[in-house]
Design a protein around this nucleic acid. Structure first.
Lengths: 244, 244
DNA sequence: CGACGTATTGATTCCAGTCAAATCCCGTGG
DNA sequence: CCACGGGATTTGACTGGAATCAATACGTCG
């Protein structure tokens, strides 16, 4: 599948009209390939356009004076990257590739005219940003009010939903190229504690996780333990639609 | 000052053109007055339009099965309220008035045509949403990686910047109608601990806080202790501009 | 094989939560 | 004007979850 097709399909999934989606795909530059760990956007940097992740996993994070890091977002294929760096014209935080990635740029000079031409595009980008915010809010609930185990379980549920996953009855699995240290930075915990909570989830038969591969053994039980409800991940205004 | 003027000034502060701002103000319904504690938006509710806070303080929060609550946003005058409830057509969380509020509604049926007519409006609303997200991210850094004292100090700095405040050299103060329990729900802490950390900040001469009034005694020292940098609160794309 | 990053384990400390009581504050009504 | 009541704040004692420190295994790659 060509990149333009992927882009078009993605925008359509957010409810954008086919013509507008095609117009967007046409202004996209050739995808950039990033190696794991490569920095895409540096804090303070002025964004040359809007980045969209095509494949791989990226993250946004902030570092503190004491050296600690907090991950602010994980980006899955189809996600906008650092849209605030685009709208605010200045990146408030770093964006780096977690695994090998392919990223497409919609250059500002070509995107802006399209926003004028197809007002639906702005609506869609706005909606994509709102979805990103929903995810952030869910993380916040986890950090503030869930136990570490529930928070981790919830995060894993979310990642199964967001990342390309193979889903069979009961068993769901996906590639998860995150180290325990990276998980810790997402959840605001220490790596050691993540390790312990992970073992807890393994011991209770919820999941398997090793070698960058996550396998959820009992989806129902895990979502219940995590109090997980996928509604916040919806891409379209209407309550989740099924089929095409 | 009439509500339309307030609205117009606010949108201009976000960089919107005067004509578009005026057009927006024209479609606004008469302001609704809310009593403290009144529920504006209920989870799951379909938003009839976009709400903008004119005066007072509101909050968005989620509750968990165990009864705990997590505040997801505080809204100051000029802020969009629950924009995801508008774009996603379904509120993912509750919005209630913390103090007596005045709220204006831009009805969907009148706002949508404006989005087509003035593409800059969508850009501005998108930018407002991005700013809200920046605030959320900053909160997340606090919850995950700052000590409770630094987190609280940071929050107070933010509120001084966002809420109507009287600022004299060194001393800054504003009305802060939040109970310690509410502060706890914002920060993901227990009310008891908030109380203790608050006393710590008082003891060190950073602040006074009582009877719904916050007084920052030493702004420089507080911002330093909180590692506070107001850049994330900027409303316009360009690095903070001074004057009109 | 050696080396470095990652994962695991154990021991200990400490920050923050919980429980519970006392006090304060303020509005209300007798 | 004062007694009452309920929420908010404060305090203390105790518990517990997560951090920290430190050492050991594991694994992958040159």
């Amino acid at each position: 599948m060509q990149h333009p097709e992927v882009l078009i399909a993605n925008f359509k999934a957010y409810g954008l009209s086919p013509e507008a989606a095609k117009a967007l795909a046409l202004i996209a530059e050739a995808p950039k390939i990033l190696k794991a760990g490569a920095k895409l956007i540096e804090e303070g940097y002025a964004a040359p356009g809007l980045h969209i992740l095509v494949s791989g996993l990226c993250k946004t994070y902030r570092t503190l004076p004491n050296g600690a890091a907090q991950t602010l977002a994980l980006m899955a294929p189809g996600d906008l990257m650092a849209c605030s760096a685009y709208v605010l014209d200045r990146a408030p935080s770093h964006v780096i590739a977690v695994s090998a990635c392919s990223v497409v740029l919609l250059p500002r000079a070509r995107l802006e005219p399209l926003l004028d031409l197809y007002p639906d595009i702005a609506r869609t980008l706005w909606r994509m940003t709102a979805r990103e915010m929903s995810i952030l809010q869910e993380w916040m609930v986890g950090m503030g009010r869930r136990t570490a185990a529930a928070q981790l379980a919830h995060l894993l549920c979310e990642l199964i939903e967001r990342l390309p996953a193979r889903r069979t009855d009961g068993q769901h699995c996906c590639d998860l190229p995150l180290t325990q240290m990276e998980l810790a930075d997402v959840m605001g915990l220490s790596p050691v504690h993540v390790n312990r909570v992970l073992q807890q989830l393994r011991a209770e038969g919820f999941i398997e996780l090793s070698h960058g591969r996550l396998n959820v053994l009992d989806w129902n039980r895990l979502t219940k333990a995590a109090d997980f409800n996928a509604a916040y991940l919806a891409r379209t205004p209407e309550p989740v639609r099924v089929g095409s």
